[in-house]
Design a protein around this nucleic acid. Structure first.
Length: 111
DNA sequence: ATGATGACCCTAT
DNA sequence: AATAGGGCCATCA
């Protein structure tokens, strides 16, 4: 059933898996790196499929605003921020503090 | 095939 | 500065 669609998600999974611990990135950054014309929306959709994957730290992926928009999609309501806190990232009110400091740009680091 | 939804982003007022 | 709306396109019913 997957066919080529799986390849599309695979691209996103690859990048997300490459995110170093203690770092975060945004959907738009991934979409930009992969050149996804679809926009950041499909990146988030791919993350939804990442639920079945194990090595896909979706908690390290947040929106452009550094806000944990997808925290509700995790196993628990506060799982995402808890994971980020364990990584050493400060999270408050579903938003990452010093987001720019922890931001990890794939097109810049993966180069 | 159409309609509706969505872990978003950008531009305009 | 803050708020509102539109656009992008893949997946589901």
């Amino acid at each position: 059933m997957k066919s080529k669609s799986e390849n599309y998600f695979d691209q996103v999974f690859q990048v997300v898996r490459l995110i170093p611990a203690g770092r975060v990135t945004s959907y738009g950054a991934i979409a930009n790196y992969l050149g996804l014309k679809s926009g950041a929306r499909m990146v988030g959709y791919a993350m939804n499929a990442s639920h079945g994957e194990k090595d896909v730290p979706a908690h390290r992926v947040v929106n452009r605003n550094g806000m944990l928009t997808g925290k509700h999609h995790f196993s628990g309501p506060n799982v995402m921020e808890e994971l980020l806190k364990k990584e050493g990232i400060r999270v408050e009110n579903d938003q990452i503090l010093d987001f720019e400091t922890y931001f990890w740009d794939p097109s810049k680091y993966l180069l």
